[in-house]
Amino acid sequence: MPISGVTILVEEQKTNKVLAELKNYDRVTTYGIHKNNYIVAVLEANTVNELEVISNKILDEIDGVLGVYPAYVNYQDDDSEK
C-alpha cells in the first residue's frame, strides 16, 4: 500500500481551519501545525495514483492550501502493479 509523508504549506491565518478540514479526509493522518505554516500529514492509498488524487484534492478543495509537497513515498504493495 503506497504511503506518502507530505508537508502542506498553508496561508498563515488559515492553518487551524485547514488542519480541521484535513481531519475529515479519509486516509489522511495529520501530525500538527509546524513553523512557517506547514502541516505534516501522511497519505495512504491503494495505488500511487490515489496518492496523487488525494494530494490534488487537498490542494484544490481546501481553501488556504498553497501547496502539497511529498517528502517520502513508499511504493511497495502498489495494487496497480498486481
Binding site: Y31, A41, V42, A71, N74
Partner: peptide, 8 residues
C-alpha cells in the same frame, strides 16, 4: 517513517 521524513 513517512511522517518523520516530512517533519524533517
Amino acid at each position: 517513517s513517512a511522517a518523520i521524513a516530512a517533519a524533517a
